[in-house]
């Protein structure tokens, strides 16, 4: 279990990460969402120890994280980078050996991974000869070689085609099943919603929301969609303690400020004519995101 507590990092006058706290639990896939410059990459770099933190602590299984712990985390940095001119296998073996593996173990583990990604026949090719999608696959293998104790992945899904997204998902799941915490950042909210057990949303260096998807949805505004037989324009003038978000022909979207105030509205609607639909609207993650980062 990885716990971030009040992490802060400044670059000159800019506070890139400002008192960030959240948990990445064992066996869970935690999504990390936020716009460009929100501080996700800086936070991940601090977790990996490649960037020093100005304030705050990182706990690993309850104790302050050590360099030794961090060396056992698998890491995929935001911008993809490998030696373009070195063959895939040699390069990954080099990274494995830097993680303290013997050359033989590293090569065996790499060949297994390459086979899984259908890249075994490319092992001797130079990285620059691979397609971008395949380079990305090699990159994720780099994070997985040394049986990582945690995975910190910065935008692992960017640039992947749908098939590759699926195999990447399988791999992440495989590691959460193994019981390790996995943190990954992404811009693709639908993907995060589909995959993640929990998510943390950052904006301007701060955590603005954190929890499971349903927790975040429950914390959002309560909205109802009302579809009538006739024009819904009268809803604007109705005074039932509801806030009208939008009216479009026979449809109105209202937000309930206080639980129960939707009932008088429904009664009035039924009195005025047929009601085709009256339903609770569960906000999409993208809406919640827009709201909390606004």
């Amino acid at each position: 279990m990885l716990q971030l507590r009040d992490l802060t990092r400044r670059f000159g006058d800019i506070t890139a990460v400002d008192g960030v706290s959240f948990d990445v639990s064992d066996g869970q896939l935690t999504g990390f969402v936020g716009g460009n410059g929100a501080g996700k990459t800086t936070t991940m770099r601090m977790v990996m120890g490649v960037l020093a933190r100005d304030e705050g602590t990182i706990l690993w299984n309850g104790a302050p994280v050590t360099v030794h712990d961090q060396r056992r985390f698998g890491y995929m940095p935001e911008e993809r980078g490998l030696y373009p001119k070195q063959p895939v296998l040699d390069q990954l073996a080099y990274l494995g050996e830097l993680h303290g593996m013997t050359g033989r173990d590293a090569r065996r583990s790499i060949m297994e991974q390459l086979e899984r990604f259908g890249l075994a026949d490319r092992a001797k090719d130079r990285v620059e000869k691979l397609s971008l999608g395949n380079q990305q696959r090699v990159q994720i293998i780099a994070a997985l070689i040394a049986e990582p104790a945690a995975l910190i992945l910065d935008e692992p899904f960017s640039g992947l085609d749908p098939d590759a997204v699926d195999s990447m998902t399988d791999i992440l799941r495989e590691h959460t099943v193994r019981g390790i915490p996995v943190l990954f950042s992404s811009h693709q909210l639908d993907l995060v919603q589909r995959l993640c057990d929990r998510l943390t949303i950052m904006a301007r260096g701060r955590v603005v929301a954190s929890g499971t998807v349903s927790e975040l949805q429950a914390g959002g505004p309560t909205r109802y969609k009302l579809t009538l037989g006739g024009d819904a324009g009268w809803v604007r003038d109705a005074r039932h303690g509801v806030h009208v978000v939008d009216v479009d022909g026979p449809t109105a979207l209202v937000e309930i400020v206080q639980e129960g105030t939707e009932q008088p509205l429904l009664e009035e609607a039924m009195a005025r004519g047929p009601v085709r639909e009256f339903a609770r609207v569960i906000p999409a993650l993208s809406e919640i995101y827009r709201e909390v980062t606004a």
Partner: peptide
């Protein structure tokens, strides 16, 4: 600078001092 530009240095820095 090649290591720095291709960001492989981040992977290396995460693995060794």
């Amino acid at each position: 600078v090649e290591e720095k530009q291709s960001r492989i240095v981040e992977i290396i820095a995460a693995a060794i001092p």
